[in-house]
Design a protein around this nucleic acid. Structure first.
Length: 429
RNA sequence: GGAGGGGUGCCCGAGUGGUCGAAGGGGGCGGCCUUGAAAGCCGCUGAGGGUCUAGUGCCCUCCGGGGGUUCGAAUCCCUCCCCCUCCGCCA
């Protein structure tokens, strides 16, 4: 969330920056409530002060063995007045908190102005798109023909937007996960963690999924627990309500987790194939850094994610999201889009964001600056490194051959028992 | 699921109704000592909020969360959450 004091002191700036995102936010209402809140705080605190002094006096009288009945009745009245004011204040504060949680982060000044994804700007291209002497096919056709996807049985055991990976498909998914984890831990200095895939409500609020985006989440019945939509949630919340020493920064984490998304409102989008599933695997990079260099850290985070695609030989482009397409909690986001020749389009495969102190303030993640000064909020960043299912999709489409087989990228072969080509799976059923 | 014990500051830990925001230790910061460091010694060191004359100011809140009793709660009561031990169940 935003800093209430900053909003109060720079309302025009905040208004203007929120306007860049488009949409309506309850800023004016918040400012009004904040004024009321501060007035109530003063009244309450004055009363408390009075009561405190009077109570102390009673203690003094009692010690001297004097009569205190007159004083106690007076203070009791004071207490009752205080109680009703406190209740009022509590309600106002709850409302302020609610409004604050519904206001998104302010876009960074380097984020291009724009209304929606059409205004995102391509900032980089890498790799040559493969040329084929046949018409390249989409991954769902390749995968089903190879027998590595089974959508029919997935629909039977669960429902739509699920898939069963079989044989070399399952192995390829597993190889990708391990390959990515190895790259980020060994070459990029990330610490590997394997967090819970289920988190509580406080964690979801900490990273910004709740309270606003409840409909995107799977919730466990009779529990205040949710399936994670991304490892960003458990990993960022690792340090919720902590104060870490400055010398511990920056903290780099990498985590493999499955991700669960209700995909409410995406009916009819990407219904074919494995691009948009209710459950998918992802390797996620998360950074906790000091505010001074978070934008440099965003650039290196992006490069760390890009390197996965480079090593796999998959062509891609990087776009910077415009203000209108920016996620709720993010101040700046780069998307990496991999080339999918079977669909003749680029598909998002990673999203790398700097949240500045927006999540840190929600989740109360701070660091103590060297020299023992007051704690400050860290900056948090995260990025997919990468979405595993979509990487598998890109491999099928970019490495497909005329005969329907798929070449395994060289870096993955050690992870697949030396397998060089994926051929039709020979299963009796 | 049953029985018991516990949650206090950056960390550990004392504190069972009244100057208790809280002993002590660790850590951190500063100083002395030292060629330098370690050790030793001395001092400082919680967080959040409100306010103005903006000060090394004044005030309020915070001892797991919420509620209650009381003139007054870290301390008493209720409730919820979490952790530990034993038993049961279990991959």
């Amino acid at each position: 969330m935003l800093d209430l004091r900053f909003i109060r002191e720079h309302p025009d700036l905040v208004r203007e920056k929120l306007a860049r995102r488009g949409g309506e936010y309850p800023l004016e209402q918040l400012l009004e409530l904040d004024q009321l809140r501060r007035k109530l705080i003063q009244e309450v605190e004055n009363l408390r002060h009075e009561r405190k002094k009077a109570s102390e006096a009673i203690g003094e009288l009692k010690r001297k063995g004097k009569d205190i009945t007159a004083e106690t009745t007076r203070v009791k009245e004071l207490g009752e007045r205080l109680k009703s004011l406190e209740k009022e204040l509590q309600e106002i504060e709850a409302q302020v908190k609610t409004l604050l949680l519904e206001i998104p982060n302010l876009p960074h000044d380097s984020v291009p102005l724009g209304a929606d994804e059409k205004d995102n700007q391509v900032v980089k291209r890498w790799g040559d798109m493969p040329s084929f002497d046949f018409t390249p096919r989409p991954h769902w056709e390749i995968g089903e023909e190879l027998g590595i996807f089974d959508f029919v049985r997935a629909a039977k055991i669960t429902g739509s937007r699920f898939v069963v990976y079989r044989g070399a498909g399952a192995m390829l998914e597993r190889a990708l996960i391990t390959f990515m984890l190895d790259l980020h831990t060994r070459a990029h200095g990330y610490r590997e963690v394997l967090p819970p895939f289920i988190v509580n409500e406080a964690s979801m609020i900490g990273t910004g999924q709740l309270p606003k985006f409840k409909e995107d989440l799977f919730k466990l019945e009779d529990w205040d627990y949710y399936l994670i939509p991304t490892a960003e949630v458990p990993v960022t919340n690792l340090h919720r309500s902590e104060i870490v020493p400055e010398k511990a920064l920056p903290l780099y984490y990498v985590a493999y987790t499955p991700c669960f998304r209700a995909e409410a409102g995406s009916h009819g989008r990407d219904v074919r194939g494995i691009i948009r599933q209710h459950q998918f695997n992802k390797v996620e990079l998360v950074k906790f850094v000091s505010p001074e260099n978070s934008y440099e850290e965003l650039e290196t985070l992006l490069l760390d994610a890009e390197e996965v695609l480079q090593k796999l030989g998959l062509p891609y482009r990087v776009v910077v999201l415009c203000t209108g397409d920016l996620g709720f909690s993010a101040a700046k986001t780069y998307d990496i889009e991999v080339w999918a020749p079977g669909q003749e389009r680029f598909v998002e495969i990673s999203s790398c964001s700097n949240f500045e102190d927006y999540q840190a303030r929600r989740a109360n993640i701070r660091y103590r600056p060297q020299g023992g000064q007051k704690p400050r909020f860290v900056h948090t960043l995260n990025g997919s490194g990468l979405a595993v299912g979509r990487t598998l999709m890109a491999i099928l489409e970019n490495y497909q051959q005329k005969d329907g087989t798929v070449v395994v990228p060289e870096v993955l072969r050690p992870y697949m028992g030396g397998l060089e080509v994926i051929e039709p799976q020979d299963f009796p059923v």
